Simulated scan of single mutants.
Amino acid sequence: MDYEAENFINVIESEFDGSVDLVFDTVGGETLVESTEITKPHGQMVTILEPEGAWGTAYQKNLGVQMLFLERARRPLDALRRLVDRGQLDPVIDSVLSLEEVAEAHDMVEGGGLTGKVVLDVVGS
């Protein structure tokens, strides 16, 4: 889904019969609060960013809201790599840059509008 071209609430309403059990927010801002509209009562919401907005609806629907700090640990990354190697996970990559281009990579991520992840090639550097 292109979050800049499509309204995620409309997509959820049409693709998932109006609501979901779990929301995992990687966008930030008011996205999580807006997601309370399409989260089932007693559903779960997780964000990796600082959420904003008014939380009255989450309270009224008895939603669980969790803040997740992403830790840099090898074990989960190895598990993801195995999924990719087996063809069970197909990551969307916007750009591959050399380690020397790390400042450009940061600018791209901070600028938004990417269609996938920015990957730093540390082996080829």
Rank of each mutant, 00 (worst) to 15 (best):
T31H: 10
S95A: 15
F16L: 15
P91G: 06
D121N: 14
M45S: 01
G87R: 00
T31A: 14
K61M: 07
E15V: 09
G112Y: 01
D21C: 08
I38G: 01
L77K: 04
S98K: 09
V123D: 12
D25L: 03
S98D: 03
L70W: 08
S125D: 15
G43E: 00
E52M: 13
E30N: 13
N62E: 12
V109E: 07
I93S: 09
E100G: 15
V33K: 03
S19L: 05
I12C: 03
V109I: 15
I9E: 09
V33W: 02
G28R: 07
V84L: 02
S98C: 01
F16E: 09
S14F: 04
D94K: 04
T26I: 07
H106P: 00
D85L: 13
L97K: 00
E71D: 15
D2Q: 13
G113F: 09
M67T: 14
D107M: 06
L89Q: 10
G53A: 02
E6F: 06
A5H: 11
D94P: 02
Q88K: 15
A58I: 03
G87M: 01
M1L: 09
R82H: 10
A5I: 11
M108K: 15
D2T: 08
V84I: 12
L80T: 14
V109L: 11
E101G: 06
L120C: 03
L70G: 10
E101C: 07
Q88Y: 04
V123A: 15
Q66A: 12
V109Q: 10
D25Y: 02
I38A: 01
V102W: 03
D85Q: 14
V65M: 05
F8G: 01
Q88P: 01
M67C: 09
F69C: 11
V92A: 14
D78I: 10
R74A: 12
G64Y: 06
V102E: 02
G64M: 08
E37T: 14
E13C: 02
V118A: 03
E104K: 13
L68M: 12
T47F: 05
G111K: 02
S14V: 07
G111C: 06
D107Y: 08
I12E: 01
G18Q: 08
S98F: 00
E71W: 09
V46G: 00
T36N: 01
G18L: 10
R82D: 12
R86S: 12
D107V: 06
G116Y: 05
V123I: 11
A105C: 02
W55R: 04
S98P: 01
I93T: 15
G53L: 00
K61C: 03
D2F: 07
D25F: 02
V84N: 01
L70I: 14
S14T: 13
F16M: 12
L99W: 11
F24A: 09
G29A: 04
T36C: 11
V23C: 06
I48D: 06
G116F: 08
G18V: 09
L99Y: 13
N62S: 14
N62V: 08
R75V: 11
A5C: 13
G124A: 15
G56F: 14
E101F: 03
V84S: 02
L83I: 03
G87E: 00
P91K: 02
R82K: 12
V96M: 06
D78L: 14
L77F: 11
E52F: 10
V65Y: 01
G64A: 10
D94S: 11
L68R: 05
F8I: 04
E4H: 14
T115V: 06
